[in-house]
Amino acid sequence: MPRYEFSPLGDSGVMVKLGEVIDQQTHEKVILFSEYLQEHPFPGMIESVPGFTTVTVYYDPITLFDPLDDILPYDRAVAILEQMSQQISNTHSTEYRLVEIPVCYGGSFGPDLEVVAKQNGLSVEEVISIHSTTEYLVYMIGFAPGFPYLGGMDERLATPRRSSPRLSIPMGSVGIGGLQTGIYSIESPGGWQIIGRTPLSLFQAGESSPSLLCAGDKVRFRPISEREYDNGEKVY
């Protein structure tokens, strides 16, 4: 079994480090450990948050304290997690969910599409083609509700962020920032180059699974016309 590294995150969290670099192998460990925690929450565990190379587990120190043995709640949490790490099978999960995301590229939905093309010496059509034929991996969700950190963008599309960020980027906007691509899940300020927009809602407050995407999913973009965008369902 791999050795996991534990460290405190404040007085109510344990950060479990599963690797040193962002790669597929570490990501799979993160997903396996997260799934195990979801299925086997321990008493006093509040929630867990997968990252690129970490899983952070939040716990309630009061629940994890037993006056009879006086063990520090952090030490008890680490002992539980260490034991859990032995239970997790070493087999890599090969099953994943592929989510197709329709995107209307360019025009008013993607005001920076030409910037990305010019920056990389490509035509607009080539940018769309490269962006929509790649399969992306959802490393984690963060920054905003439902916002996916996607890995796997073709380096030919890499474009620096805008020198001055926009104050408001509409929900569903698909952007490129450096070597990353992503989707603005809620209206938000931001500095990424915006190349298109999806009619799908990436986040719906109130649902039992409010986020369209989860860490571990794969994503593929499908180009659609403006007409298709207008007809596109806002729900998923």
Binding site: L9, G10, S12, G13, M15, I22, V49, G51, F52, T53, T54, T56, Y58, M140, G142, Y149
Partner: peptide, 10 residues
């Protein structure tokens, strides 16, 4: 640093 979870009080 590689981005990871942050907690209240960080």
């Amino acid at each position: 640093l590689i981005s990871a979870a942050v907690t209240v009080g960080t």
